[in-house]
Design a protein around this nucleic acid. Sequence first.
DNA 1: GTATGTTTCAAACAGTTGTTTAGATTTTGG
DNA 2: CCAAAATCTAAACAACTGTTTGAAACATAC
Lengths: 208, 208
Amino acid sequence: MSNRQSTKDRILDAAESLFADRGFAETSLRTITNRADVNLASVNYHFGSKKSLIQAVFDRFLKKFVQALDKELAPIEAQSESPTVEQVLHTLVTPLLQMSQVRNKGTSNFMKLLGRAYAESQGHMRRFMQEHYAPYLLRFTRQLHRAAPNLASNEMFWRLHFMLGTVIFTLAGSDALLEIAEADFKESVTLEQTLERLLPFLAAGFKS
Amino acid sequence: MSNRQSTKDRILDAAESLFADRGFAETSLRTITNRADVNLASVNYHFGSKKSLIQAVFDRFLKKFVQALDKELAPIEAQSESPTVEQVLHTLVTPLLQMSQVRNKGTSNFMKLLGRAYAESQGHMRRFMQEHYAPYLLRFTRQLHRAAPNLASNEMFWRLHFMLGTVIFTLAGSDALLEIAEADFKESVTLEQTLERLLPFLAAGFKS
DNA sequence: GTATGTTTCAAACAGTTGTTTAGATTTTGG
DNA sequence: CCAAAATCTAAACAACTGTTTGAAACATAC
């Protein structure tokens, strides 16, 4: 009968949105377990520690994301002629939007977490990402390199980080930005429309 | 004689770099007062509370910044012909670089703090900025509007936020990025060079 | 049924947090 | 030089943190 989510999932859901909204240190396990309506000790039982819970939240996102990105990247990798920059950037759209379909505010939660982790001390998270998800990043940049073959690799490095900043920052604040936009311009805007507005900006900057 | 900095300044210096590196909640008053080599209670004596200390750190930065920005904006406001987008964006360079001249890693500290504050819950910080520094933001956007008069205001809104994300994200991570760039490409890069690389990217995106 | 392994629970643990207090010390102004 | 104000200091405060514990409740298999 029990159509109640598993304790593990309830914890992950609560932790995800709380971490995204308040940050890791600012969110206590008691706040999480209260919202999830589970016992305090169950976090340590199921995940071992708070640190591991944080990683578990990331893993759930990243698995889904790279899986979707793989589907988008494959056909481009297969085609013989070089892709356009716009084409490569567009591989991000579906994977990003999908996060919000499965869970409310999923995309902005994901980007908020990435932004927070990125800002974390000592680049600890950057190293984790590099170790666990480097192959996917590499596949993406390889296609970008095919699209702009005569761009020096150090220039590529910088513009890639510029784009990363724009995406993370914009989507992390997308909830608030969408609200402001609707209030100020009386036009309802979706996350998808925002992404379609963002990509030309990125492409133009990248080709600057 | 005492050429020792005032207690207030010592606290502000320590708090600034610790907040930037670790975040607000992750930095305890004891860590701050230890680094500053002052008594624990002096934070509450001079600033009232931890929250007020955070605001004081911001205020010190923002005062310097808008003061320098004013100097850059004034001549453009005075000139009769419309400025170019590049010209308007370039008003940010000197104010941003100046932060690193007075204090080591000043610019990246400033951007890290902005990034953290921006991600904070409920847009509490966004409201504070809006209330206290809206006039300066307005002067900047007014010039940007002069540079691109036929850009719809809702488009302007989005591209402004895109640019904001790129700048904050890039400069917040500039320490690490500069290190990586030097290690990978054997070319020493300065913060100023990074900014000069960043502006064309922004201008191209803005005009996309 | 009982026995076995898994999950939940309330309670307590030791450590850290921001803030307050009251007394000592230093600085200021007449 | 002395009183008054400002500053510094060590100690204690209550509240909150992540984690551990051992017993209770539940599920599964024989």
